[in-house]
Design a protein around this nucleic acid. Structure first.
Lengths: 349, 349
DNA sequence: AAGGCTGCGTGTAACGTTCTCCACCACGAA
DNA sequence: TTCGTGGTGGAGAACGTTACACGCAGCCTT
């Protein structure tokens, strides 16, 4: 009556239960679990059978005390950014068939909040971290990266402490400038994110983008037309930038931005000022998010291959976590221009 | 030379180090950490000082073995859904000042994948779970909810096993129908998500929405105009639905959808068919996401107060986690209509 | 003054894994 | 026979934290 093996208590099945059920030692089960060396095929089979029968799943907290937790943390500032969703998809897909679980921390834009989230992930013994354009100070990121394998996406600052995945944002800017120049534009303004404060990152995507823009403009002999306006990457930020630029004495004939969402704010500003796109103003976004492709929008944009960036980051991270690589590496993606209806040839005059 | 207290090893600071530094027992430190009963103010102060000085942070994995892990898991299918972002913001804000960390699992639409993610969260000993419109079978959700405090957002199916937060989707549908009828429309079609398969949820948001739509139509004596078209909540799904509906023999004068993104697909279909919005077709979305407010879009939609839903869910969950409530509860939000340019009075004829 | 509270601090056994040794066995070579 | 030797399985000590149980004051009641 009481000898039944039925685990009807609401306690979880543990490795001990599996060992007892299979008639082997706990150590043996552990070995099978981690497919470690020194396990005979027979043992394998017996243990796996018991695991399946008891529906056993290892408890990550306990594993974390001695070994891995099989958890990868992804830090991002804002779930609303559709480009990040592409990256996430890439990460997930790469890791889907593995035994790792991806958990996302959405920390917001506040550097302190982000730092707190990173700490939380480290405290939870995560095996590796993917930080998407972190706003946390570079020093803090380097500090955590020495203890936990880390991949930084976005920032171009090189280091031998963590891996990096970046987009060639300078090339992206050039693509847009070349496209606009080919359409006859000369007065081309850039709207990009405000220079980040004192967080020590020197080569953020915005900075690299602006550099590429300047270089391209100079190459076309348009150095005196260079105009960089800083604005938050949001509808409101774009709107304000648009109102300023489009009511300026010398109104640009084309505006490129570092993010699609900001371009839509500019779109709104243009609309409000009675300017039509693309007749009175050519407008280009960045990231080629779903926004850009929407029917009523049709925004020319630059595709960053977020999916590929994500899967690369995940692959690189796992290499480090599993110790298959011991040196830092950096991957760079080539952007691609996607022309839609928001850019057009400069009308005479 | 070796007596220095400097923890220069790359080992983490543990509770033992803190205890030694403060000259108290490990148990005392633990009590302070959990602000448990039986600690004098002097002890508090000493321990806190040591914690600060050593920059000690408890290791969640170890905590998880005996007590809480101070982690809340949020399951969602798709980060791209802007409505979910609102919910997330609400959750984060509610928990920001607490000691809990929110980790998100983006599992995709596959029920199996979602189930796997839920299991992962349970394996990681998370203290509580918030499931946003889970596609996993009801039985599985109920099973995990018996062991881990859980809040389900979206599904109206009542239960005493987990808490629920829902929007009064039927009311939302009524708001839209009333609005459209007031504008003179009679032939109003609904585009909503396909009935979920055999996952046992009876009162999903789509079902409740459709019921509300039917009830409102009947109330207005428009029963014979009821038309429910099923389509995936995506641009493509909306587009296909739009092509079907708008080329049908009896073309509706107004279409309402269960998601903004689907409405935009219909927008594209209308555009392609040479129909103008709102002159030839009134169009209403749902969720009042950022998409709806975009300048070129101006979509009439229904606001679900996602932020409030998120914060409510978080508050309810913490009550359960901390044992301050032992009975299930259900919270219902009242939706609000947001009229924009995509709906207009029916032109004569 | 004895007894009983109450408040505070500590010792220590768990918790479920991993991983380093160590023991055992069978087999082949000397 | 004796001695490696390579392949398998197991014992048991961690890992960092919680929480139970206990001990010891000091104080209030009678």
């Amino acid at each position: 009556m009481s000898g039944s093996a039925a685990p009807k208590q609401n306690k979880r099945v543990t490795i001990t239960d599996v060992a007892r059920h299979a008639g082997v030692s706990v150590a043996a089960v552990s070995k099978v679990l981690r497919n470690a060396y020194g396990v005979s095929p027979g043992m394998q089979q017996r243990v796996r059978a018991s695991i399946a029968e008891l529906d056993y799943r290892p408890q990550a907290a306990a594993r974390g005390m001695r070994g891995r937790t099989y958890t990868i943390g992804v830090l991002l500032d804002n779930v609303r950014n559709a480009f990040f969703a592409d990256i996430l998809d890439g990460i997930q897909e790469e890791l889907r068939t593995s035994e790792y679980t991806v958990l996302i921390g959405a920390a917001g834009f506040d550097p302190d909040e982000q730092a707190k989230t990173i700490r939380s992930m480290v405290d939870r013994q995560m095996d590796g971290l993917i930080l998407i354009a972190p706003g946390t100070s570079r020093a803090k990121v380097l500090a955590t990266a020495t203890a936990t394998p880390t991949v930084v996406i976005g920032h171009h600052d090189g280091t031998d402490t963590h891996d990096s995945v970046v987009d060639a944002d300078d090339t992206g800017a050039e693509l847009v400038v070349d496209h606009l120049v080919a359409l006859g534009h000369q007065d081309i303004a850039l709207v990009s994110a405000p220079g980040t404060k004192a967080n020590q990152w020197k080569r953020t995507p915005e900075v690299v983008l602006a550099d590429g823009y300047r270089a391209a403009m100079e190459r076309h002999g348009l150095a005196e037309h260079v105009r960089v306006h800083h604005a938050a990457y949001s509808d409101e930020g774009g709107f304000k930038a648009g109102m300023t630029l489009l009511t300026a004495e010398r109104r640009p004939t084309a505006v490129m931005t570092g993010a699609d969402v900001a371009a839509l704010g500019i779109y709104r500003a243009a609309h409000e000022l009675g300017l039509s796109i693309p007749d009175d103003l050519s407008l280009a976004g960045y990231n080629n998010t779903a926004l850009a492709a929407l029917a009523p929008v049709q925004l020319t944009s630059v595709d960053q291959a977020g999916h590929t960036m994500g899967s690369s980051a995940a692959r690189m991270l796992i290499e480090r976590v599993e110790g298959r690589r011991d040196r830092a590496m950096q991957t760079s993606m080539t952007p691609r221009l996607v022309v839609r209806g928001s850019t057009a040839a400069l009308s005479g005059s």
